[in-house]
Design a protein around this nucleic acid. Sequence first.
DNA 1: TAGTGGTCTAGACCACCGC
DNA 2: CGGTGGTCTAGACCACTAG
Lengths: 230, 230
Amino acid sequence: MAVDQGVSHSPSLYRKVAEDIKAAIAAGGYAAGTRLPSESELAERYSVSRGTIRQAFAALRADGVIASRRGARRVVIGGPRVQSFGELLSFSRWARAMGEVPSGRVIAMRRRPAKPLEAERLAIPAGSPIYHLVRVRLLSGRPVMIERGAYPDPVGALVAGMDLETGSITERLEGVPVEWSDDRYLGSAVAFSVHNSTAVNALSRTRAHRGESGGRPPGRTESASDKGLK
Amino acid sequence: MAVDQGVSHSPSLYRKVAEDIKAAIAAGGYAAGTRLPSESELAERYSVSRGTIRQAFAALRADGVIASRRGARRVVIGGPRVQSFGELLSFSRWARAMGEVPSGRVIAMRRRPAKPLEAERLAIPAGSPIYHLVRVRLLSGRPVMIERGAYPDPVGALVAGMDLETGSITERLEGVPVEWSDDRYLGSAVAFSVHNSTAVNALSRTRAHRGESGGRPPGRTESASDKGLK
DNA sequence: TAGTGGTCTAGACCACCGC
DNA sequence: CGGTGGTCTAGACCACTAG
């Protein structure tokens, strides 16, 4: 029943809820990777309808704060605060933040002289020996990325001794500078969102994430026919 | 009420409506700057509730296709062709999603040693043989893109045997990772939408939405996420 | 199987735009 | 002023996840 929701007018209800949740995350109430309360629970807690809670969550998702899958509770991706370098760069950390289990399968690991570009990127003399790693990365068992990494000699020796099937290189290198890696993701599994500050005018500020033609190639389900616009 | 909407399942109603509207825009029915039909009118036309129409519009807005103000009708922002990053992977898929017929005209296809940058991008030894393809891509007969692709030896052999005039390489590579492609679009025919937000990081990783686990379209995503950038 | 998010409906009131 | 989008409610069924 209609509820006069008269309280105050300027900030809409769902924005307030969104800000509140965001604040709770920032305050440490919900660490990255943890699960948030369900829609129904929050609806009751805030005394609003489920739809309003969903609107709030939609806003948080647009900001990249949370992630959601059908059937499972929403999880915190990263706080609104600045992420540390390691957090942004570590596949393992990122995966866990989404509630997924990161792993890896080593395709190749060998020691060879650095190519010109590699040497330049790693700031070492051309031809210096490096360790080159090719690893398939998996998200809860599903391969989503191919990682090609180059490590300078002293670091490479450490990397070579790691358990590369389950571990995170970045997390263990802790402070040791540099790795150069060209990562190619499986397009269907990962979406990159590019944030651009100065570009574009009116048509910016979005975040696009809708399924591009989902999993069923055959159907082609032509959309609406005559009754639609055309 | 209820609506069985049961019959076939996959694409949700609002996605169909969104695709339909987008197709109508692409078809020229609504030029940039023009006003779209109101929510209520579309709701009646499609025989759905207003909420569903709003969801469809929300998706279009997230793609930067339309803009909206309270009290006034929504207006078309971008030109007819807006390709979101997520759909960037397959030209053919993108084309069909717009109701256009994708095709291609092979300009050149030959085998030659990889240039330094190509070798680097494909992570193969410098000078290794690759297949280099130059193809003009057409949208329902009109050329809109020049595609330059480089494929390593084993993959290239497959590509060379494909029907490149009508087919999609990406869709057939099924799981074979690795391709490095430099695609240049005709400026007047295509507009890329850059998504912008207030987030701190210039590049962040987000999980893709769809659930699927079966047949996934392969894709290269030139992530250029070389760790060390900033 | 129970819980959760995804989708959809059919109402309602409001702030704002344009005629 | 009537029409439009923005917000909110209170139901409902479904597909999927997790224990």
